[in-house]
Design a binder for these strands. Structure first.
Lengths: 346, 346
DNA sequence: TTGTATGCGTTATCAT
DNA sequence: ATGATAACGCATACAA
């Protein structure tokens, strides 16, 4: 139970009859220290099991080499991929991550923000929760000049960089594809208009309709939380429609899958009766039958970009003003769920 | 770019004409301070935007209120659920999490361990990587009396508590179920014998066979990394077998799904030609057709238990000697992929 | 109930 | 090339 005493630079200094200043300098490989003493110090440090005390440094340097990450949830393929990307960059640059999930709740997000603020993170990487309305809980960072970068679920803020894909374009392409397959009554399942990703995807959907002279109809817009269960419930609503829609474009794959399963159970054939497209290219999209057409979404890259941009900023490499938005490429992946023209190939 | 100056207890003390000791005591709600002064101090702290400096405290108290978490990967439903459980407990108790993924590689795991050690975590929560042989990189924690708890992918270590399910029992039940469905030639797909979970599941499988007088046959054991792709490759191997096996028990759902898809493509009917069982109750198990029989696995609970146990230990509540293993309940969930008796119901 | 003084382990400034 | 010393912000033993 007793904590063994930590070895400090004082201990090293005493044993070698040098000053702590010399030890400190040697330990960070300062060229001003002679090779000989440096070697002596390194060796002794190793031998005595010296370990660097980050807190003393943080206290002294007023920074923590820690980055706070808040995501809506960890258990989505996309998010965990993003985090992997963030981690690789952060580790490389000597930063530690504090990760927290908001579970899609604004109040949890606020609590996490506060925790991270109190932990004196050097910078923040945030993807907003489903129901966050107001982003005032991030003002504390801005005020203290702590850089904050939003990714994927972003917010418009004059002081923050955003990293995301062109959601509007992705949705536009998916919808155009459905139209090209002969679909006219296309349902769009999406989530809260509080989040840019859903607003933009809806806009892309609308524009695709407009560009093909298909009138937009409110009743074809279904709003839910995009869970698989919500997809199943959406299916019930869809089955009530008369005439039945001939395509569904869901704002994520999970929801699309829940909906597909329910519609199949109701006896509809996909894509013949109703075509499907999703968003995200989640692994589940290649498990569902027929495989789901979707938008591929560079999660790992997004994580890397966000982290790199943040760290560059921390190092003063690029000014936060210079880049306000980083847009990543996405792509439509066409699979059997939407292929009506030669639907039964393979 | 300039860092605004931080407010400290000195600033508060000066403005109120009290000592820093009083401020320090008031801030942590020490009953010894009078209500009046306490209120004054709280109000001023609020007004001046004072924030607590964890590093000064850490430096002073020689602890960090930080817990290190190392997992094989974040992007599995199971692991992210475990982490959600860990997080809820840790947050409640005022601990911060540093999370890192080993990406199933021993060297990354070692690097993460070192980082966390240098960050002076108060305790560790670890689930081992696929290819970790030697757990010597955790000795540094043991030596410093930093408690370490393994969960799910555990190691036998006299000084560590393990939190896991009874993998042997789970596998035994799954295998018995397959046998009860009339299967005799049961392939078991599993992973490295370096990890307890796979060793135990294999043992459960073997015991089930033995208890039903079915001879064990080496060639029915397939070892891979349990990815979906590996499942597809396993399918190729299985198709070479003569006679064909009549059941597959995979050590996780992902791999089972990959294998099912490939076998279906090859024209086999599930469960009529070949029955399937997996492990984990991953959401994908209810997307694949037919739905996958599997072992449900209490991830959130496991995270809560591991975190609670660690924090209790940190608080000196329970000695690490008192509980060396915490076993959680798991359960067999029977779905269509293994139901041969009345296979086509529903 | 409040105050004084010291140490926690660094880094950095100024000397030498 | 090396050393002495002053911060950094807080908690606490001891005093008052």
């Amino acid at each position: 139970m007793t904590k063994p005493k930590e070895v400090t630079i004082y201990d090293l200094a005493r044993k070698l009859n040098v000053s702590i200043a010399t030890v400190s300098r040697a330990l960070k490989d300062d060229p001003v220290v002679s090779k000989k003493t440096k070697k002596k110090i390194f060796d002794l440090a190793e031998e005595m099991g010296y370990r660097y005390n980050h807190f003393a440094r943080n206290l002294r340097e007023q920074r923590t080499y820690t980055i706070g990450v808040i995501v809506p949830r960890l258990n989505s393929y996309f998010m965990s991929t993003v985090i992997a990307g963030i981690e690789s960059v952060a580790n490389n640059e000597g930063y530690t991550l504090i990760i927290s999930q908001s579970s899609e709740k604004a109040d949890k997000e606020m609590a996490s923000a506060k925790t991270m603020f109190n932990n004196r993170v050097d910078g923040m990487l945030v993807s907003l929760a489903y129901d966050t309305e107001d982003i005032a809980h991030f003002d504390q960072f801005i005020k203290k000049n702590i850089p904050l970068i939003f990714f994927d679920r972003v917010a418009d803020h004059p002081d923050c960089t955003n990293v995301l894909i062109d959601n509007r374009k992705g949705a536009y392409e998916a919808t155009c594809h459905l139209i090209a397959q002969g679909c006219q009554r296309i349902v769009h399942i999406t989530a809260t208009p509080k989040r840019n990703v859903y607003v933009d995807r809806l806009a892309g959907y609308k524009q695709a309709l407009a560009d093909h002279q298909i009138p937009f109809d409110d009743k074809y817009i279904l709003i839910n939380n995009l869970s698989q269960e919500a997809g199943a419930q959406a299916a019930a609503t869809i089955l009530q429609m008369n005439p039945l829609p001939d395509a569904i474009f869901a704002a994520n794959d999970n929801c699309a899958v829940g909906c597909m399963i329910a519609l199949k159970k109701a006896g509809l054939r996909i894509p013949q009766d109703i075509a499907f497209a999703g968003f995200n290219n989640d692994p589940v999209s290649t498990v569902i039958e027929p495989n789901l057409t979707t938008i591929n979404y560079p999660g790992y890259k997004m994580g890397e970009m966000a982290a790199t941009s943040l760290i560059n900023h921390l190092n003063g490499v690029n000014s936060i003003d210079s880049t306000n938005t980083i847009l990543l490429r996405s792509e439509l992946i066409i699979r059997a769920s939407s292929l009506r023209t030669k639907s039964d190939s393979e």
